Amino acid sequence: MIKHKNKDEDATIGPYLKVATDGNYQENMPATEIAKITTDNPWYILGAGAMGCLWASYLTLAGLPVVLITRNKRNGNAINLTKANHSQSITIKQITLGELKPSTLTIKHLLVTTKAQQTISALSDIKPHIDNDAILFILQNGMAGKHIANLLPTQQLITGITTDGAYRTDELSVVHAGTGETLLGDKSIIDCLPKNHLAIKFCDDIDNKQWQKLAINCAINGLTAIYQCRNGELLENEEALSRIKLLCNEITAVMHALGLSVHQSIFDQTLHTLTITADNYSSMYQDCQQQQSTEIDFINGYLCSEAQRLNINCPENQRVLAAIKQIEQSYAQ
Rank of each mutant, 00 (worst) to 15 (best):
I266Y: 12
T270A: 06
L100Q: 08
G47L: 06
S188I: 00
L105F: 01
R74L: 15
L46A: 12
T106C: 06
L260S: 08
I200V: 02
I266L: 12
Q155E: 06
Q333T: 01
A20T: 12
I138T: 00
A149G: 08
V19C: 10
T119Q: 04
A50K: 07
T162V: 03
Y331F: 09
L258R: 14
R74M: 14
L258M: 11
I200E: 04
N24F: 13
D297V: 08
I161T: 12
R168K: 15
K245C: 08
I327A: 01
K195D: 05
L61R: 14
G222P: 02
D133P: 04
S173T: 15
V175W: 05
S242I: 04
K209A: 07
N317S: 04
P102T: 03
I135D: 01
I135G: 00
C314K: 05
Q308S: 13
T224E: 01
L64A: 08
A31M: 15
C288W: 10
V262L: 09
C218S: 11
G185P: 04
Y302C: 08
E99V: 02
L193Y: 01
C53H: 13
V66M: 02
I226V: 11
C288G: 14
N77E: 13
Q156A: 11
S89I: 10
G145K: 01
K245W: 02
E171N: 14
R74K: 15
D131H: 12
M51K: 07
K245H: 11
D125N: 06
T104Q: 14
Q326M: 03
Q228D: 12
K36F: 12
D125T: 10
Y227P: 10
K3T: 10
N311P: 02
M1D: 09
G165E: 05
I45Y: 10
S265C: 11
I138Q: 05
D40N: 15
R74S: 13
V174S: 08
Q155M: 00
D279G: 14
K3E: 12
S87P: 09
E238H: 09
T91N: 13
G76L: 09
T39H: 12
K108A: 05
F267T: 01
R71H: 14
N85C: 09
H263E: 15
Q156S: 14
L223W: 08
L157R: 06
N85W: 11
Y285E: 03
W211T: 03
T169L: 13
L310G: 09
N313E: 13
T224P: 05
P194N: 06
L64E: 08
F298V: 06
T70W: 07
